[in-house]
Structure formats: C-alpha cells, structure tokens
Simulated scan of single mutants.
Amino acid sequence: MYAPRMASILFTRGAPSLDIIDQEGLREAAQKAFTDDPGGTFAYGTSVGYVPLRTWLAEQHGVAPEQVLVTNGSMQADAFLFELLVSEGDDVVVEAPTYDRTLLNLRQRGANVHAIELETDGINVDALEKLLESGVRPKLAHIIPNFHNPAGYTLSEAKRTRLLELSAEYDFVLFEDDPYVKVRFEGEPLPTMLSQDKNAKVVYASSFSKTMAPGIRCGYLVGPKDVIKKVQDIATTTYISPNMVAQSIVNSYCRSGRLEESVVNVRTALRARRDALVAALRRELPEAVFTAPQGGYFMWVELPGVSIEKLFPVAKEHGVEFVKGSDFLLEGGDNELRLAFSGVTPEQIDEGITRLAAAVRSLS
C-alpha cells in the first residue's frame, strides 16, 4: 500500500492544468481590455452580457446578437434555461450517463427525468423515439454532442439529423450543451445542431472554461430570439449584469486571434494525455472496456466484475482518485468510472493507472 503522505493523482476534475493555459496571452488581453474600454469593463453592464463579446459570438454562430446571452459560466446558462422551461412534474430527457450537475439541477426542480442510454455514437435515438411514441412529451432533451462529459463519446451526424427531426415532430427544445466542441484531437468536426436548425427548436450553450481558463467563468446561450429574451428577463432579476471584467477580457482575447492558438496548444497537450491514458490502461488493466475519445477531457471506463463502490476507498489509499460512474446515472454504473485526463501530465497518468491497477488487484 502507498504511504499516506504520497500525493494523490487526481483523475477527478475536468479542467486544464495550469501549464497549458495561455497565461501571458490572458495578461495581455486583460491589459488591452482595461486600456481600450475602461468604461465598459469596470461599470455595471446589461443582463445580456458584455455587448462586444455578444456581438463577436453572434458573428461566430451566424446569428443576430439578439439570439445570444453571455453568462457567468455555462452552468448558469443551463440553470437559467431550466428555470424558464422546466417546472415540477415536467418531463425532460437526458442521456445515461450524463453530467452530474445537470441531473442534480433537474431533480431539484422536480422534473420527471427520462434517462436514455448513451451509445458510443451518442444517445440511442431509437429508444428516444419509442419514449416519444409512448406519449411522453418532454419540455426539453439535454444533449452533450461532442466529447461527452462523462463518457467522452461524440454524437454522430446521422443522430444529430434525427434529433432535429424528432424535436420538430414532437415539439420539444433540443438543448445542445457543447463546451468541449473546440477540443478535438482527431477526425473531422461535425456541424452543430444549432447551425442546421430550421424549426427554432435548438438552444445552444458553450463556455470558454475549457479553451481559455476555468477561472474566467464565461459561458453563453444561443437560441431563438423569444427564448433568449425570456432568459434575459430571468437574468435581469438575478443580477444587474454578469461579470463585465471577465467578459471584456474574453472579448479582447478572442479578437486578438490568440484563442485559436490557445486551442491548438490545449488540443496538443490533451491528445498526449489521452494517448498516455489509453496506453496505461491497455498495459495495466487489459480487462478494462473503453472507447478512446476523439477530443475533450474525459474517458468512461468499465471494469467488468469490479465493484466501483468498493474500489473507490481502496484506490484512494493507493493514492489515486476518480469519479464513480453511479454519480452520472439515475441507477446502475457500479462497475464504471470516469477518468478526467485534462489536469494530469502523461507521467502522472502512467503512475496513476499503475496505482489504480494495484488497487483493483488488491480487491481480489
């Protein structure tokens, strides 16, 4: 067993480590924001967010600025949308597994949550269609299309098309929650459902936490004007404005051209970490079942015959921590876990999986 004083290796947080954050670029962006627009940066703003950033985002997505609202992180954007659309007893659809905070938020609102199996190419649309045919009428379906948290999977193009068709046919909001879209290591990017939406059914969310810095706390929503206006009304009663300083810095950074350079650096580092994780798992835990993600921060791993509930404290004693699969599911997941590889170096990953394997062996 590892000595208690040995530092734990943490596969727990989906955040980039400090060494792959463009600290110098963010310092320059902050200085430029403070110099070029001190009035807009340091004063109260409006509930739609920092207006130049809102305009930039609208241009990126090919929509009118009135279709964009910038918030304090994408989780706040999610919470605003749920407050608008979901009341106690309302039906909602999520993937199984899905992001644990989404489950918590929806359950706290008293929603009737329908968890649909997640396959390696995205949500099981046949199962979703059967649910809809049974008479269930969800207010929204929450979908994480790219490099899913926690699973790492990516929604196929065919399934994106089918989800758009189902949302139009059965009249529900398709909530495209897409904070990892830029962090692709390999393969061709797929068009967003937002960009293909002909029926005003998609509300899109993303964030700068995964490409710029988690501490920047800047996310946004894009959707139909009437939906965004109603969300804006909720934001207005929540605060006078979101964080103008952070949003002004993000705007300065994005317009400087440094964002794409930063994204390339993040992709390069995370691909090396993904590769290290795959290699270590194949060497140390050949029985592990997983699909290597094409991007993002996470890998979903099944350990057949292993109780994760029992493994969790033993792994901690061995100096390695992860998140239990059951945290992301309404039921099940006892032999599954999520490994976040974004905040650990390849060397730490190699050592961490060696420790994890030792913990697994000690159970038997």
Rank of each mutant, 00 (worst) to 15 (best):
F147D: 02
V245H: 06
M75Y: 11
A111C: 12
L10S: 11
I144S: 02
L57R: 05
Q294Y: 03
V289K: 08
E261P: 00
D171R: 13
L81H: 07
E66N: 13
P97F: 04
S262D: 11
R54H: 05
L26Y: 07
Y50D: 02
A279G: 08
D350K: 11
Q294I: 04
M1A: 14
S262Q: 04
P191W: 09
R107L: 14
I9Y: 02
A158Y: 01
D171I: 12
F42M: 13
D275A: 09
A358V: 06
H318Q: 07
P214V: 11
D19Q: 14
A29S: 12
T161P: 00
T102Y: 03
A30T: 13
G135Y: 08
R5C: 03
E336Q: 15
R274P: 02
L106T: 05
P224E: 13
A359I: 02
G333V: 03
A111T: 10
E302G: 08
Y253E: 10
A340V: 01
G223N: 03
T211A: 08
Q108Y: 12
L166E: 09
E24W: 06
E321T: 14
Q76C: 09
E66R: 15
L311R: 00
Y220L: 04
A269W: 07
F185S: 06
T55L: 09
F328R: 01
Q196E: 15
Q196I: 00
I249T: 14
V289P: 00
G223A: 11
P150T: 05
T238W: 14
D19T: 05
N243I: 02
P145E: 06
Y99V: 06
E24N: 07
Q196F: 04
V92I: 12
G40C: 09
A3R: 07
E287L: 11
V51T: 15
R184C: 03
L259Y: 09
G319L: 00
S167F: 01
G39I: 06
K316Q: 11
Y99L: 12
A213V: 07
R13H: 10
V93N: 03
F312H: 13
R109I: 09
L69R: 10
S262N: 13
I249D: 01
R27I: 06
E188C: 06
L259S: 06
K201Q: 13
F185H: 14
F312K: 05
F172S: 08
A272M: 09
A279I: 04
M299Q: 07
R283V: 03
L194P: 01
K139S: 15
V181P: 00
T98L: 09
R283N: 14
C218P: 03
A58F: 07
I216D: 00
R101L: 13
M212W: 02
F175P: 02
M1R: 07
A280L: 01
F172C: 08
N72H: 11
W300T: 01
L174M: 10
L128S: 03
E28S: 12
H318I: 00
T120N: 08
N146S: 07
A280E: 00
V136Q: 08
R162Q: 13
E347Y: 04
R258T: 08
G122A: 05
F42S: 04
